[in-house]
Design a protein around this nucleic acid. Structure first.
Length: 271
DNA sequence: ATGCGGACCTGTTAGC
DNA sequence: TGCTAACAGGTCCGCA
């Protein structure tokens, strides 16, 4: 489900309900997520005030009084603000009960997500400290892509999906950004000029920015924290359209597997 | 050091 | 209709 735009949509949806609220209690129904939910969180979080709800890459960071809760949605996770009376469903793995008589509820059928607890500088956490720049800031540029592409040899699509290179570009938006930039997904990163990396960087910014504006991409089941669908799906040029006509030139779109991920492109528009 | 495949899970869909 | 296999938005780890 969630790439950067979906995580940002979630953050914006839940932040108003969490900021400056006290966590009265925590209910962990399923501690076995990607990593076990730490016992210290259950012990230490109750009584904390949530000072801010931030995001680094696809990680949501709840800045609390004594530490930071790190939440990742994995492939199938979502966060909702619900009424405490609403009975938890099968995959509702944890709740934060708030002093506003609302509950932050986490759902994740595949359990690829996580809930961790870190005291001290969050930027030193092992999941956060190796992350590349945020794509929507000026830290991220074609120049940076060009520079980090010189040392290695790999196809460009898996390259832009690496969190050390740039955060937040998952499979959907990698496919889309490469289409917009006119770059073939299997092209070697060493054989792309600085000028084309400039275009690629701005296409990544553009596609992520537009997706955030309309609330993310709803495929099967993504909805925002208020339960609304995202509207980006109708703007997709290639993702999920293998075998259909290219919206730009009419050529039939090709679909291949590249680094185990479904990859769709137009062989006329992308070189 | 780099790059690939496997691993973690469940639900949905396509195909027989 | 029912079973099975493949596939799905992520990302870390271990091995070659």
């Amino acid at each position: 489900m969630p790439e950067l735009p979906e995580v940002e949509t979630t953050r914006r949806g839940i932040a108003p309900y969490l900021q400056q609220r006290k966590v009265l209690s925590v209910v962990i129904r399923q501690p076995r997520l990607r990593w076990p939910v730490p016992k210290a969180l259950s012990n230490e979080l109750p009584g904390n005030v949530i000072r801010a709800v931030e995001r680094r890459g696809k990680y949501l960071l709840l800045d609390c009084t004594v530490a930071t809760a790190i939440i990742h949605l994995g492939m199938s996770g979502s966060l909702r603000i619900v009424d405490p009376k609403l009975k938890p469903a099968k995959h509702d793995h944890f709740d934060f009960v708030l002093d506003s008589s609302k509950v932050l509820r986490y759902t994740d059928p595949r359990r690829f997500g996580c809930l961790l607890w870190h005291s001290g500088d969050i930027h030193k956490h092992w999941l956060i400290n190796h992350l590349g720049p945020e794509p929507l800031t000026d830290d991220f540029s074609g120049e940076l892509l060009h520079e980090s592409s010189r040392k290695r040899n790999i196809a460009v699509k898996p390259f832009i999906m690496e969190s050390q290179v740039v955060v937040g570009v998952g499979n959907i938006y990698a496919n889309e950004a490469l289409f917009l930039a006119g770059i073939h997904p299997t092209r070697s990163i060493r054989r792309i000029s600085l000028a084309r990396y400039d275009i690629l960087a701005s296409c990544i910014k553009d596609v992520l920015g537009r997706a955030i504006k309309v609330g993310g991409t709803t495929l099967r089941d993504f909805t925002s924290s208020s339960g609304e669908a995202g509207y980006f799906k109708q703007s997709l040029f290639v993702y999920g359209r293998g075998g259909l006509e290219c919206k730009r030139c009419g050529e039939l779109l090709k679909e291949i597997r590249l680094a185990q991920r479904s990859t769709v492109f137009c062989s006329k528009c992308q070189r």
